[in-house]
């Protein structure tokens, strides 16, 4: 396939398998005092069974809005989705679903883990009651069965003495424990897709590792597809199979995790990679940073949104908006001058 041909289809890791969740041209806009602001602009990706898809980007790039759009958790009266936006899941478009049916999917088929375990739990209810909730909504288990299931879940996320913890309140638990509870809550109904929105950002490094290991194990045992949203490329390298890089509301690159780390095509991805400290890398003395700032939602340039901060910027970049283009079967990039090694060969 020529690198110049525009594509709406995204590369697939396993072309034969059907994706569990498929996001197509997702555009999310907010009505505000400053007019209609586009937070997410034509984002597309697929998630397959048992894989971990990473969505990476700086804060404010639209990662979380993407996640919340999939779950339809944004305040409906100020949110607008694009007319051709689709979130396909088990044969229907979630964006058009009635709230009542959407509710049956939330927490049951698609579940979510949040960034702040300190605030994500309701402070005035016990852990047990909050774990029980999803089971109440989505299963017909009896009270006793639900209790057994709650204990099971607590054990599964490796909470010591679950019988005691069940009766405790969130403030009595440490941050890492609370995040386990949040994960247990998400796993309560064995969802097909688990969306983890920066699940480790608020945690200590050692706890981070534990939580990631836990998620990895869960994925292996239950074949749940995971969408892992993070700004931490270390986490991506450790966990993900494929990666979508977002910048200013758009997907700028998507690739398998190895390709991305060894041969990034988008200058933004490269810049991101260069800004992580690595022990094995050449010592250049100081860490690279990306100059400038992400453009605000109300001042998006019409051309390439990264041009302002790009080291390889050329005249064209500030005039014409690049399109997301497939460069190989499994990768695509939004850049007029992609930087990866394979680019030269296909040209």
């Amino acid at each position: 396939m020529s690198s110049a041909s525009p594509s709406s289809e995204l590369p697939t890791a396993a072309p034969t398998a059907r994706p569990v969740l498929s996001v197509r041209n997702l555009t999310t806009q907010f009505r505000t005092d400053r007019g209609l602001l586009t937070a997410v602009d034509s984002v597309s990706f697929d998630v397959f069974e048992g894989e971990v898809l990473g969505i990476v980007g700086e804060s404010g790039c639209g990662k979380s809005v993407t996640a919340r759009s999939i779950m339809r958790l944004l305040p409906e009266h100020i949110t607008r989705y694009g007319p051709d936006s689709r979130v396909e899941f088990s044969g229907c478009n979630l964006l058009e679903l009635k709230e009542r049916r959407m509710r049956r999917i939330r927490g049951d088929r698609i579940a979510m883990i949040f960034q702040e375990p300190m605030t994500a739990l309701n402070p005035v209810y016990t852990i047990g009651a909050q774990l029980d909730e999803a089971l109440r909504y989505h299963t017909s288990l009896s009270r006793r069965e639900r209790r057994r299931r709650v204990l099971e879940l607590l054990e599964r996320v490796e909470i010591p003495s679950p019988e005691r913890r069940r009766r405790e309140y969130p403030h009595q638990l440490s941050g890492g424990m609370r995040q386990r509870i949040v994960i247990a809550m998400a796993l309560a109904c064995e969802p097909d897709v688990l969306i983890a929105d920066e699940p480790t950002t608020a945690l200590d490094v050692t706890i981070q590792a534990q939580i990631l290991r836990l998620m990895d194990e869960l994925r292996k045992t239950s074949q749940t597809a995971i969408v892992l949203i993070t700004h931490d490329l270390g986490v991506v390298a450790q966990m993900c199979d494929r990666v979508v890089v977002m910048y200013a509301g758009q997907v700028v690159e998507s690739a398998g995790v190895d390709d991305l780390f060894h041969d990034a095509a988008h200058p933004y991805t490269r810049a991101l990679l260069e800004s992580i400290p690595r022990s094995g890398a050449r010592r250049t003395g100081r860490l690279a940073t990306i100059p400038g700032m992400v453009p605000g939602l109300d001042e998006m340039p019409a051309a390439c949104r990264f041009a302002e901060r790009c080291s390889g910027r050329e005249d064209r970049c500030t005039r014409i908006a690049p399109r997301l283009t497939d460069i190989t079967d499994a990768r695509s990039v939004r850049c007029h001058f992609p930087m990866h090694q394979a680019a030269g060969e296909t040209h």
Partner: peptide, 8 residues
């Protein structure tokens, strides 16, 4: 949000 994500 957590509660809504649970399907409440």
């Amino acid at each position: 949000i957590t509660a809504r994500a649970k399907g409440a």
